[in-house]
């Protein structure tokens, strides 16, 4: 454990919040609306109220690394978004690694350099916003890890030893301060999967990047992303994986949508369904299928659902 950066879940959440602000993610809402929905259902089941705000814009994460790196813009956008959360008096929870990483980094910069915070506030003051820096930024998975036991107690469809692999995504683990778990060898997702009754698989390329970040999925699909993902999926396939979970809708897009292309290009079958960890928790906790939105997945979940005894389109708990 890298002692300085890593915090224990008890320290991160001395008290479990009753009400949280859920930060909308561009990719999450558009590509996999099921993820957002599943998270809302899981939180409801755990007794945590969710607040959202239509005034909140894109996190500006893409911009930070797409040659539009201008401190003024990104800082102003972050300050504006976080000031909206502060108006509700809550802490910010993201379900996308990208949103979380960028917001955390920019909030940290503003915290360390008050002149940047002042500059951002000057820009957004004209629209009537003010960012104080009080709201804390978290990923929903951190809350889930903290509430691992409560989740385990609410499982109605145990995963029966289903072989699940995890893709953590880079922007969560590589943040340089205040994260849960060790970036060198993370295990908290695997522990959640065990709590749900699954078998976590530690495949060789588990910590590998998905390659889609900052638009490479558009601009470098054949040259960079596909060979990259091929290596990752080959390693997962060899380890015998039935399902893959992730905690970033961006990564989810890459991993899910590229598999048919990989199958065609490399003439090898790649058909591992990829869903968000929130959806998996929802599934295990008995959230009805139509609320989990698996229709958005390119690689069908039918095989997995059948194995778990949850029929496709079936509204009842089996």
């Amino acid at each position: 454990m890298n002692k300085e950066r890593v915090v224990t879940p008890e320290k991160m959440f001395p008290e479990v919040p009753e009400k949280i602000f859920l930060f909308r993610s561009c990719t999450g809402s558009m590509e996999y609306p099921g993820t957002e929905n599943a998270i809302k259902e899981v939180m409801k089941s755990l007794g945590i109220e969710i607040v959202m705000d239509p005034d909140q814009t894109c996190c500006s994460g893409y911009l930070l690394t797409c040659s539009a790196y201008k401190p003024e813009f990104s800082l102003a956008v972050t300050a504006r978004n976080l000031s909206i959360v502060e108006r509700h008096g809550l802490d910010t929870y993201m379900f996308c690694n990208g949103c979380m990483g960028y917001n955390l980094e920019l909030a940290h910069i503003m915290h360390e350099h008050p002149e940047y915070k002042q500059m951002a506030n000057d820009v957004i003051a004209k629209q009537g916003y003010h960012y104080e820096g009080k709201t804390e930024i978290h990923h929903v998975q951190e809350l889930w890890y903290r509430l691992k036991d409560e989740i385990a107690a609410r499982v109605v469809h145990p995963l029966n030893g289903l072989r699940v692999a995890v893709h953590y995504g880079c922007h969560y683990l590589a943040i340089q301060y205040n994260i849960l778990d060790d970036a060198g060898y993370p295990t908290f997702h695997e522990e959640i999967i065990e709590a749900l009754g699954g078998t976590p698989v530690y495949y060789k390329e588990r910590q590998m990047c998905c390659g889609y970040s900052v638009g490479r999925g558009f601009t470098h699909k054949e040259t960079l992303v596909q060979p990259h993902l091929y290596k990752k999926f080959k390693s997962a396939k060899e380890a015998g994986v039935e399902l893959m979970t992730t905690c970033c809708p961006g990564c989810n897009t890459a991993l899910d949508r590229e598999q048919p292309n990989l199958t065609k290009r490399y003439e090898e079958e790649f058909a591992i369904p990829v869903i968000d960890i929130g959806q998996l928790i929802g599934l295990a906790m008995g959230v009805p299928l139509e609320k989990l939105g698996f229709d958005a997945n390119t690689i069908r979940m039918d095989g997995v659902l059948k194995k778990l005894g949850i029929g496709k389109g079936d509204n009842h708990d089996n």
Binding site: T65, G101, C170, H171, L173, A174, I175, Q176, A183, C209, G211, Y212, S213, V214, R216, T219, H220, T223, L224
Partner: peptide, 17 residues
């Protein structure tokens, strides 16, 4: 410059940060 995906692993592993 344009193929870097900003995965942050380099700065995470660097002994001099």
């Amino acid at each position: 410059l344009w193929t870097c995906v900003s995965c942050q692993l380099c700065v995470d592993r660097c002994p001099s940060h």
